[in-house]
């Protein structure tokens, strides 16, 4: 994770297109300016960033399912639960699955676990929109490489 760059997932561990599920891992950094303020003497991952990491995980599942033809944009977050603190240095496993694939939107359910124990979960709605410009695919490809997304299966 590079919190300041909003890089909130590190590596795709499993992308199952048949079951429409994805699992990624994300290492919370030991040090970040964010922890200086959140909170002094009691550093914990902000809940909004945990939601964002679940959204990014869900997003890559949707990108794969739609073969880069649509981009998922965060539209709604429901039933988001922060069940326990996430602290610097912890290794997160983030899973997401599809609840519903609509026309122009999709809903996912995502979970964050640490050592197998559930720390957060949310139901997330995305608007699915054609990529905003042709260069966007290049940017997405760069992110895809960084997180071990199986790009070879999705030629541009």
């Amino acid at each position: 994770m590079q919190l300041e760059y909003f890089q909130l997932i590190d590596r795709i561990l499993d992308l199952n297109m048949d079951e429409k599920k994805i699992t990624v891992e994300a290492q919370v950094p030991q040090h970040s300016t964010i922890f200086e303020g959140h909170f002094p003497g009691h550093p914990i991952m902000p809940g909004v960033l945990l939601i964002e990491s679940m959204a990014q995980t869900s997003g890559w599942l949707l990108i794969a399912l739609m073969k880069f033809e649509r981009m998922p944009f965060l539209a709604a977050v429901k039933e988001a639960k922060m069940r326990g603190f996430v602290t610097p240095g912890e290794l997160l496993t983030v899973e997401a699955g599809i609840v519903h694939e609509g026309s122009g939107y999709a809903i996912t359910e995502a979970k964050i676990r640490v050592d197998g124990k559930l720390r957060c979960n949310a139901t997330i709605t995305f608007s699915l929109i054609p990529p905003p410009n042709p260069e966007f695919r290049q940017y997405m490809d760069a992110v895809a490489k960084r997180i071990d997304f199986p790009l070879q299966a999705f030629p541009s």
Binding site: A75, A76, H100, E101, G102, S103, G104, Y105, I107, T125
Partner: peptide
């Protein structure tokens, strides 16, 4: 955004997929 919630509830209730992209 609210219409997405409605579309989801309709899709679920009727077992269909409202073609929102096509309509738009």
């Amino acid at each position: 955004l609210d219409f997405l919630d409605i579309a989801f509830a309709i899709d679920k209730a009727f077992g269909i997929k409202l073609p929102l992209e096509k309509w738009t």
